[in-house]
Design a protein around this nucleic acid. Structure first.
Lengths: 173, 173
DNA sequence: GTCTATATCCGGATAGAC
DNA sequence: GTCTATCCGGATATAGAC
């Protein structure tokens, strides 16, 4: 395994984010990340020279995933807001994992906070453009934030989405 | 200062939560908490025998504050849901500080997660009883969660509340 | 490109003086 | 009730072999 450099780097980022998601910032030590990715700590530090670089790598990948996601939102046409809410409740996608990881990091890392802020701005812009109504766009975004927040604490979201859709229908959405 | 035991304990909890809020879990070390409260680490450990006890103390205090808050919600009468959303966006109250602190802890602490879950359940129950509509109650709660979430990342909420109120008005609230 | 060994530091916790 | 001194374990990071 691990034929080339970029494969291993991706695997290291996957391991880092998974540990962040499952055990929080304290659980995502260099040792743990390396072990999960199947390399030694020295091996990890060859690819990412410090923990800060590992964080940076993860946030950069998040940025790329968000760009892709915005494209998919746009591709959803008039179901754009539904697509947004459905994916807000989603668990286990690469984007979701990166996003949760960033949330963990944001607790004590200014760059992660900034990354989350930019992500929110990007989503607000498409929502607002699509709905043509800042009030509604902000409300839909806050609901999405709420679902993301609950996911963070391992709360099941199954009925939440149904409840929300019921209410959005009353608003003509 | 620090005449009696319970004064110091409260001050230690205040310091703990403030450090949690401002610097995340990693910043809330026993040394830092003690220093901020104006005692030594030994002094802190007299009151709370371990870090786990400090966490427990903070979550217990949160529980008490939530009970009080629910009472105040009920006292708001037919403005109950407005009261809920306004206080969700609030910053700097003891309840708010405790709640953010619990959010930081919840990242890697199961008891904190449970405390947050229970808090949400308590709020949902009053909202649902008041609105008599689970769909609406869940939606309002998610919006509150969203505002809390943004507060966590230091985003200004000024216009968010106004946007939300505009939309709720369309729903007859 | 990955490994081992090691230096250094820091946080939690104990012991015991005051 | 609070303080100082100290121990222990764990985390980041460096050096250098393979």
């Amino acid at each position: 395994m691990a034929r080339n450099s970029s494969d291993t780097k991706e695997r290291l980022l996957d391991s880092f984010e998974t540990l962040l998601d499952e055990h929080g910032a304290a659980g995502a030590t260099l040792d743990a990340v390396a072990a999960k990715a199947g390399v030694s700590k020295g091996g990890l530090l060859y690819h990412f020279g410090s923990k800060a670089e590992l964080v940076k790598g993860s946030l950069e990948r998040l940025g790329r995933l968000v760009v892709e996601d915005v494209e998919e939102m746009k591709a959803a046409g008039d179901r754009l807001h539904s697509y947004y809410l459905e994916t807000s409740a989603e668990v286990g996608t690469p984007l979701d994992r990166s996003l949760i990881a960033a949330g963990r990091l944001a607790q004590e890392n200014e760059e992660a906070k900034t990354a989350l802020r930019k992500t929110r701005e990007a989503w607000f812009d498409v929502l607002n453009e699509h709905l043509g109504d800042p009030h509604l766009a902000m409300t839909v975004q806050l609901i999405g934030d709420g679902m993301y927040f609950n996911q963070n604490f391992g709360l099941s979201q199954d009925d939440a989405l149904a409840h929300v859709k019921n209410v959005l229908a009353r608003l003509g959405l």
